[in-house]
Nucleic acid binder design. Structure first.
Lengths: 327, 327
DNA sequence: CCTAGCACTCTAATTTCTCGATTGCTAACT
DNA sequence: AGTTAGCAATCGAGAAATTAGAGTGCTAGG
């Protein structure tokens, strides 16, 4: 258990290091607390023994360890109000009623990336509530058809298919069949229904039913898949901890790996912080994530920055956004 | 006018510098030509006077100047066959008949970026031949409609619109009207037709015709706009000339500026090379571009790398791709 | 428990030194 | 006239030495 004084020393070191990116010495702290640098040094030694601080070399100032940051975010960080300017910038997005939720998220995280110089990820998982509204097939060339699927949340996906030997009549019949049987079905149940209810019936009517069936199957799969977007990737370049090109390459490659990013959801609804080795991204970064959920949609937003990240601000910003979109 | 020997010296310096990225000295060259280093030095001095070579400092080897590269690509470069492996990799893409052209382009440029470690841009301008095939409106919620537009080339775009006080009847009527009047119209003429033929008519039938009109107008604009894609951006990081973070940031920002990239088309159908200050990207890069044109589609592909770029190989690769897609 | 004082440590920046590559020039050679 | 050997001069890159300063740990005394 830390004493009050140890806590305030740790807090100062963390905030100061976040601000200036230079190891913090005892002198800077004894100026602010009312005691001598020797006293601070003794305390710092204890904090180092506890694994909360580190030195870069024998006679440098102290730097927070991963554990130190952890202690800071768990116990010492205090949530401040956002500045008027920040709120103002974000409000313009939330008050623009003509935007879809995914646009609102992307824009607001662009703003956050801008304000903070960190990188954001929006994982926009289409809601389970998405229900099939209508399917349509448009013939565009001799043997080429386009299957279009619309859901009641306004999601539209399409896929081109090539068929031959199937008359337009038959196709129309199939479309009508699907529309009659599965409109209103939640998207993630459509595949099963397609397989067990539609497929057997199509088989009777249409010769090349496999092609039609597969095309629609693909479209439904696309719709129920997640959508991931990385915002402000170049901000990585702004931080001195990432001045090494191979490190940058590493992180960029990971940010480009959409499949990996699709697994960032959280179990809980809090704002979760993963510092250094606690995340799978990179030992030198910190990731702050939270889920959001509205009646229509749900997903995850995450901010990625150096471990020496302005945790307070990012948590505040994410909290603000979460509250806004969850209403 | 350069002598034969001067040309072969220049050629050696360029190819050697492209290969090793180190200033080329007279010794390396006199080993290959049958003369002494002093002779080479005299020649190099003349090439320097002509502005074709440069020194990094008084007693370093020579490096090609921009003008030197230019002379090389204009007069000295010879086009070699692609290696079997390269052709094989690319063939798998071109022979996959189920891919749309834009996918073929993106995949083949991914392969090229992979082979060369350079970055590619695909500017996929939708063809003027794109004709309106069908429009459709799907109501998804009380006052929310989705407008869907399909062209005869299989392009599908959609837009959500919010209307109130317009009955579904009226909407259907409008859709039928548009379908009847402008199906078959080339996409880039649709907007005009919409304005002068449809709008006046809609105005009579439908109260809130502006909203409907605008939604469709937006969709048509989206369809006729160009699509730009950057492939292998991280390859920038692999070249020693871009080891400076602020330079990287600079180039990345430009590669992210889609609007700027949309203006990369060429006037002619050749493969065009822009070295250093000849391009608008960055004085340290070279850009190699060419247009492609098929019956259905046209656009531009470009490769971006350091000035010290393997011009031969890139030109060969672009040429190969161009020939493949133009059939 | 706190603090002043001091020797010690280590970095970062600056300077000096050396090595080797390469040049330009000159004078001699073919 | 073109080519070459020889040589002093130039410069960068890297190693080693130097210095200044910031910060530490420890000790002894308040």
């Amino acid at each position: 258990m830390l004493t009050k004084r140890q806590e305030s020393i740790l807090k100062m070191i963390v905030t100061e290091y976040i601000k200036l990116a230079k190891p913090v010495g005892s002198k800077l702290i004894c100026d602010r607390l009312n005691c001598s640098s020797a006293t601070i040094r003794n305390e710092m030694m204890q904090l180092e023994d506890l694994g909360l601080l580190e030195k870069t070399h024998t006679s440098s100032g102290r730097v927070p360890s991963e554990k130190g940051y952890r202690y800071y975010v768990d116990h010492l960080m205090e949530l401040k109000e956002l500045s008027g300017e920040e709120v103002y910038k974000l409000e313009t997005v939330f008050q623009n009623s003509s935007l879809e939720l995914s646009d609102v998220l992307n824009r607001s995280l662009e703003i956050i990336s801008d304000i903070t110089s960190y990188t954001s990820i929006v994982l926009d998982a289409k809601s389970h509530d998405n229900k099939l509204k209508e399917i349509n097939v448009v013939p565009v060339d001799k043997n080429i058809l386009i299957a279009i699927v619309v859901t009641d949340q306004g999601v539209v996906e399409h896929k081109t298919m090539e068929i031959s030997g199937v008359s337009l009549e038959e196709v129309k019949k199939t479309v009508k069949l699907i529309n009659d049987l599965i409109v209103g079905t939640p998207i993630d149940e459509v595949s099963a229904k397609l397989e067990f209810e539609i497929k057997p019936v199509i088989a009777k009517y249409v010769k090349q039913h496999e092609i039609l069936y597969n095309a629609f199957y693909d479209v439904f799969t696309d719709i129920s898949s997640k959508n991931v977007n990385v915002v402000g990737k170049n901000n990585i370049l702004k931080h001195q901890e990432f001045s090494n090109v191979s490190k940058i390459n590493d992180i960029f490659s990971k940010l480009d790996n959409k499949e990996m990013l699709k697994n960032i959801e959280e179990k809980n609804n809090d704002i979760n912080i993963y510092i250094g080795h606690e995340n799978k991204m990179d030992p030198d970064v910190a990731v702050i994530k939270t889920n959001y959920k509205t009646s229509k949609d749900e997903g995850t937003i995450a901010i990625i920055g150096p471990k020496r990240m302005d945790y307070d601000k990012v948590v505040n910003l994410l909290d603000y956004i979460k509250k806004q979109i969850e209403g």
